[in-house]
Design a protein around this nucleic acid. Structure first.
Length: 173
DNA sequence: GCCATACCTG
DNA sequence: CAGGTATGGC
């Protein structure tokens, strides 16, 4: 059965749908630390309650976990491969790191990832690289310092994301 | 106690 | 990603 309603432009979702998840992942390319208020604005077609809010916050928390795990993985890999300076690390669209991230948040690869995300990813990778080289990882909470840096690099999420039907506009064939 | 967030697991 | 646990603030 299709869930298309005759009032498709004003349907209020009782819960989060697969499309909401897809949209959240694309939003991650702009913001790693969205506030609950921001989420309410960008998911205006969702009827919020404590659980929905928690679930959305949880999604981004999971997104960040994957993101940082990849960063640490590639940073250590670079070190093992003999890289001596973070300056040598660049994250372009052809980088393995980017391909791993893109595969996770933009699996169909039908969304044009903003350049700014590549920059933030590069900063994050270098941050991990330098911390590990400096032996900071001996401290159980060494990643906290990095998180504090990265959380300041969130970008404005494009206005189009505020539309409940933005996926059709954002994804090209 | 309740709720939020951090860390870990499957 | 969802669940469960531990923890800290109110």
């Amino acid at each position: 059965m299709s869930d298309i309603s005759p009032y498709s432009g004003s349907t209020i979702q009782e819960g989060l749908s697969p499309n909401h998840l897809k949209k959240a992942k694309l939003m991650f390319f702009y913001t790693r630390y969205p506030s609950s208020n921001m989420l309410k604005i960008f998911f205006s077609d969702v009827k919020f309650n404590r659980c929905i809010t928690s679930q959305l916050i949880k999604w981004f928390s999971n997104f960040r976990e994957f993101y940082y795990i990849q960063m640490e993985k590639f940073a250590r890999q670079a070190i093992n491969e003999g890289v001596t300076s973070s300056e040598e690390l660049a994250v372009g669209r052809d980088a393995e790191l980017f391909r791993a991230l893109n595969m996770h948040y933009n699996k169909a690869n039908d969304f044009e990832v903003p350049e700014r995300f590549l920059e933030v990813a590069q900063v994050t990778l270098r941050e991990f690289f330098n911390a590990i080289v400096a032996g900071k990882d001996a401290d159980p909470s060494w990643k906290k310092a990095i998180y504090k840096v990265i959380c300041k690099l969130d970008s404005e999420v494009p206005e189009v994301f505020k539309s409940p039907n933005c996926l059709q506009e954002l994804l090209h064939d």
